[in-house]
Design a protein around this nucleic acid. Structure first.
Length: 395
RNA sequence: GGCGGGAUUCCCGAGCGGUCAAAGGGGCCUGACUGUAAAUCAGGUGGCUCAGCCUUCGAAGGUUCGAAUCCUUCUCCCGCCA
């Protein structure tokens, strides 16, 4: 039976940091002594219901806690979403309605269960509207617990303040509200990305000021997106969603720059490929494991085979959607057809053609052939670039 | 309440009366190459009935042969001072 110290070491192995030093070990000891599970908190934002691999880093860590018998407390930030979080690059987010929040939260949970265990003993889902919809005097009492200087220490606030960029009062208040969540659910541990360090630590101060034991915090490094540079986020378009199709997940992973692979292996806890494996094959291994995690091994093998066919053998995929061509059987204007088939403008289609990106049954179409007889198209596969295919039929 | 700065094509950001469908970068697309939808290199990137035409530079008016560029009003955003 591993000691709390060993368990703590295991839990923090691929984490960014655990604060205060030794805090997690103490919590584990205390829980063992009191024969109770730890309450491990994660706040989630119900404005973005599409979970991607970046989210699964923290979720995976929560799962590890669950496997050890601890209880995960998911907090749906319904109250904060309703107010409209203006954080980030000063883009004011629209306040969401109750139904939207419900729908988003439901979607989030459903997707989170690809990683988390839904066992009610191991999972509790709460909404912060339960306690944040408070009277003004209670809110003021909370607001008194931190100073502006304290909040402005947070790196992104400090930077924005220095650059005379806007910071809303609500934004300043957010860390306090998040901290109060920890008070309300009596969190023992709170998880988050490294960007959450300040907020998580402030939660400790808030808990202490309410006379509660302080939570320990565990931060996970941010997973870079498939561009290999910026953190994975849907708005940057560099994400791999947990509900995406196997082929997409596989292909997107193969697009990851080689240098970023190590981080993915570690944070996604994918078992390493054997020593000496070529980078390309390591990436294949990674891609296969990721697809298998969300769609099963069979789908992963299928995705790999399809990938090989398209990008290694440059062959046609085995399933191609049909596209009905409206024609009287005479001349067909290719730019119009391509635009129609792939949802582009004719200008884009024309450029594609001029750049040699259009093929018929795998054969490149001459750059200056804009009009062809339908007889040359019927039943053949029209290809735009490497990834878009359509089989032509008279419509 | 006063003063000042700003709104440009997907994003950032130049432009300051014609040579502007608008520099540059990012992103994205395509091609070559390859060990991959990596890297690298090259090209492209408003629309169309495409050597031409049409619509874009916060909105509406105006000046001018001609406006993203000048004027007026309006809308929105930001900072500073009170």
């Amino acid at each position: 039976m591993p000691t709390p110290s060993q368990i703590a070491a295991q839990l923090t192995a691929n984490a960014h940091e655990s604060l205060p030093a030794g805090g997690l070990e103490q919590k584990l000891e205390k829980a063992a002594a009191e024969r109770r599970p730890l309450r491990v908190k994660l706040g989630l934002d119900p404005t973005a219901p599409d979970i991607h691999l970046g989210h699964t880093v923290v979720l995976g860590k929560l799962r590890e806690f669950q496997e050890l018998g601890h209880r995960v407390v998911l907090i749906v930030g319904d109250y904060t979403a309703r107010v409209g979080d203006p954080s980030g690059r000063s883009q004011t987010r629209p306040a969401l309605s109750g139904e939207e929040i419900d729908a988003n939260a439901a979607t989030y949970q459903e997707q989170a269960f690809t990683v988390l265990r839904a066992d009610p003993e191991l999972l509790e889902v709460r909404r912060n509207g339960e306690w944040l919809a408070m009277e003004a005097d209670e809110l003021f009492a909370l607001a008194r617990r931190a100073t502006v200087a304290q909040i402005l220490e947070r790196e992104d606030f400090a930077a924005r303040f220095a650059e005379q960029k806007p910071i809303s009062v609500l934004e300043l208040l957010y860390p306090l509200l998040q901290g109060y969540d920890s008070v309300a659910i009596e969190a023992d541990v709170e998880l988050g990305g490294t960007d959450q360090t300040f907020n998580l630590l402030l939660g400790r101060d808030i808990q202490r000021s309410y006379g509660l034991p302080e939570q320990t915090i565990l931060t996970m490094p941010l997973l870079v997106g498939i561009d290999g540079e910026q953190k994975m986020s849907k708005s940057l378009g560099n994400h791999v969603g947990v509900t995406e199709a196997p082929a997409e997940q596989f292909g997107k992973t193969m697009r990851l720059p080689d240098e970023a692979m190590d981080g993915w292996f570690s944070l996604l806890a994918v078992a390493p490929a054997p020593d000496g494996t070529l980078p390309r094959d390591r990436k294949r291994h990674l891609a296969r494991e990721i697809v298998a995690r969300f769609h099963g091994h069979q789908a992963a093998a299928g995705a790999e085979a399809a990938f090989d066919r398209l990008f290694v053998e440059r062959d046609l995929p085995d399933e191609i959607a049909e596209h009905a061509v409206t024609t009287d059987g005479g001349r067909v204007h290719l730019p119009a057809l391509i635009a129609d088939a792939f949802g582009q403008s004719r200008g884009e289609a024309r450029r594609l053609l001029e750049q040699g990106g259009v093929r018929l049954d795998g054969e490149p179409v001459a750059a200056d052939r804009f009009d062809v007889d339908f007889s040359e198209l019927d039943g053949r596969v029209l290809q735009a670039g490497k990834r878009r295919f359509v089989r032509l039929r008279r419509g």
